[in-house]
Design a binder for these strands. Structure first.
Lengths: 259, 259
DNA sequence: TCTGTAAGTTAACGGTGTTAACAGTTTATC
DNA sequence: GATAAACTGTTAACACCGTTAACTTACAGA
């Protein structure tokens, strides 16, 4: 099955071209907007003709799916790397870091954010079976964070997440089990709600609905992220911000190459 | 300047056609998805040719802008009407109702929601000066609600919104004043955050990121809406849900005609 | 050297937004 | 009532899009 080294070389070249195509698509998305990401434009950019791209991607939608998976991966990498800059037992720090980096990644990759959480490509519907695994990695990161803190007994959930209807508890526990998450249902509940809080603020900001707040949008978000940390009974530390700055500078250096 | 009755009749006919065009666009959006909303498809639907549409809308983007303004208006109508079904001094009820109806409208008009808060049309950028006033009406509704409760002394804001950096207070107060909102800065702060919370959950749900929660997404949202009401020191009442059901049935009867 | 495969090409189909030039009807004016 | 103007719609065309089919070209393996 694995062949002749010659064949493997060819495969390497193929994925190199595939990467070039994705890079061109990403470049166009960044400079001309999501609307300009057309197979013909990409081909022009690469000095090819459009039909040639079909040797590498079955269709425009396949290419977009690849871009989406890459975006999820980039996002997860940021989150994981940033959280890993803090001690494993610094639960408050890691949780706050997660929230803060979630916004930083979005601001640094607005087109990717739109690709994942808006619906910028008309007629495209993400194939669940391909994008869901990529998306789950992010969820896993935060759930692992929460679970670690939970195991360490560091978490005291606010009433909102403990005093809930019984059927809701049950159904949520079922959902968690079905998805293979081994965490208390209330943690899953909190994670979803927290995600919603952060997602909403970022989404509103990036799509231009918070112009009223101007520069203060970041401050609103920061307070929200800290509130969420407090919500599980943890105490956010200012030291986290210093490490965040360090992470961002590191990304600035290595970032632009392969986001 | 106002003319001859003849001219006014013509104007009426013109706006009637404009409405037909918007209706056709909306119909296509609902049945075939946002991708299918093309001038040619609309024209086909109306038994015309595409260039004829240019007599009524300067461009496709102008038409989309009109659809957006209509969507904002529909949303604001729902919110206003639903809140008005409760007594003016039922601050908790009105606030909870606002939150609940925000989701109900979104579920009932997913394409419009995407139009407002996603970015489903490629290459389209909403002209701020046209869409912002329409968008502000919704913000005004909730701010008026909050202010009424505030004036009545019914509101006790959680610490998150009172213990904030001094410069943040000042900048936010400036922003509020600049936008013509005569409310305490902390109310504006809370309104924005609350908006983010609700927006995030709806956005995640509608764009398919909460499939894990399944049916429970509604319950998560409900708990979140109640939490927000409690967050300003008000007590949500179960009676609100009965009135919500009443409102929704009323919308079901009159709704489909002109969304 | 011959052959098969892979990569890339051109040509074409049906779709899109948009413009220009033209026809038909209706309105206003002399 | 005839004539000019305004308005509403048409067709033809341009440049763009995703996609397919048929063809050329290079090149690795026998």
């Amino acid at each position: 099955m694995t062949q002749t080294r010659r064949e493997r070389l060819r495969e390497v070249a193929r994925t190199a071209v595939r990467d070039e195509i994705k890079a061109a698509a990403h470049r166009l998305m960044k400079t001309e907007g999501a609307a300009a990401v057309s197979l013909r434009a990409i081909a022009r950019d690469l000095g090819m003709t459009a039909p040639a791209l079909y040797r590498y991607y079955g269709s425009r939608d396949d290419l977009i799916t690849a871009l989406i998976v890459d975006a999820y991966t980039s996002q997860a990498d940021w989150l994981q790397q940033a959280c890993d800059m803090l001690a494993p037992d610094d639960h408050a720090g890691r949780l706050l870091m997660f929230g803060l980096v979630y916004r930083e990644w979005s601001l640094a990759h607005p087109e990717d954010f739109a690709l994942l959480y808006g619906t910028p490509i008309p007629g495209y519907h993400a194939p669940w079976e391909v994008t869901a695994p990529a998306a789950q990695r992010n969820m896993s990161i935060v759930l692992k964070l929460l679970d670690a803190a939970w195991q360490a007994g560091a978490i005291t959930l606010a009433e909102t997440y403990t005093r809930v209807p019984a059927t809701f508890r049950r159904k949520l526990a079922e959902a968690a089990a079905a998805a293979g998450y081994d965490v208390p249902f209330s943690l899953l509940h909190f994670a979803m709600v927290a995600w919603g809080h952060l997602q909403g603020l970022i989404s509103l900001e990036l799509f231009g609905h918070l112009v009223l707040l101007g520069e203060q949008a970041g401050e609103v978000y920061r307070l929200e992220a800290e509130a969420l940390v407090k919500c599980v009974g943890l105490k956010p530390s200012q030291r986290t911000y210093a490490i965040l700055r360090e992470f961002l500078q590191q990304q600035l250096r290595t970032g632009p190459v392969l986001n």
